[in-house]
């Protein structure tokens, strides 16, 4: 049976259509989800896309966190049952929801950064990265103004120790992120957030590479039971 992957649209979401497209190219059935519906429509996994939900008012992701659709999503994600990928604004929503530790703050340079970005996949042990190899380098798009990942030292040490740093910027984080962290996972490996945009790198015509497709094919493999999350977080 084809996996059904939901993509949430908040008011101000920007990359929901690209996320839907990436899900389709990966071979799954994309299911549009609406922020105001407290219903996940029985999907097998969810993508929280990039953009500027609720205009980024207050703080990025701070209001989206309380959207009706999050009511069902948060407990299912926290329990380890529901794979959730947060990209850019979606990562901010996951941190504001406390599904992931730390926070995303203003880029050190204060400039909005829009560039092709080289990343190193540090963990292939999550629901969203099982099709990669630890140490593999990929090129995807980074485009964000508040992408500087920060957390207290104890949290960063714990993320490193438990293999929950999922992707890291190579050549230094352009936004000043602590320890060059571009993406992290929760303790179950089912919830992953990252600042760069794998959904923009899924076909040669429009992306800098096809390197991002692996996030979407990985969750399909995970749902098919071939790559269990957390089975081997180190590699």
């Amino acid at each position: 049976m084809t996996a059904r992957v939901g993509v949430v649209t908040f008011p101000g979401s920007l990359d929901d259509r690209d996320a839907v497209r990436a899900v389709r190219i990966a071979g799954a059935e994309p299911v549009p989800l609406w922020h105001a519906d407290a219903d996940l429509k029985g999907v097998d996994a969810v993508v929280l896309p990039g953009g500027f939900s609720y205009g980024d008012y207050l703080r990025c992701g701070a209001i989206a966190r309380f959207a009706p659709v999050m009511g069902e999503l948060v407990p299912a994600a926290r329990s380890g049952a529901l794979p959730v990928l947060g990209i850019c604004n979606g990562f901010q929503v996951l941190c504001e929801s406390h599904l992931l530790p730390g926070a995303l703050t203003r880029n050190r340079s204060l400039h909005f950064i829009n560039r092709e970005q080289r990343l190193r996949v540090e963990s292939a042990g999550t629901a969203w990265t099982g099709r990669y190899t630890a140490g593999e380098e990929i090129t995807v798009v980074l485009k964000s103004g508040e992408g500087r990942y920060t957390a207290d030292a104890a949290t960063l040490d714990e993320l490193e120790r438990s293999g929950r740093v999922v992707v890291r910027y190579t050549g230094g984080a352009p936004n000043g992120s602590d320890r060059d962290i571009a993406g992290i996972a929760n303790e179950h490996g089912n919830v992953v957030g990252l600042m760069p945009h794998p959904e923009h790198a899924v076909e040669a015509l429009t992306g800098p590479s096809e390197d991002g497709l692996g996030f979407f094919t990985s969750v399909l493999a995970h749902l098919a039971g071939t790559v269990p999350a957390g089975a081997d977080r180190s590699g």
Binding site: N107, R108, R148, T150, D152
Partner: peptide, 14 residues
């Protein structure tokens, strides 16, 4: 306020 240990690049720009 941002906690004292959190970088505030906007404050630095000011």
């Amino acid at each position: 306020m941002l906690k004292p240990e959190i970088l505030d690049p906007q404050g630095q720009a000011i």
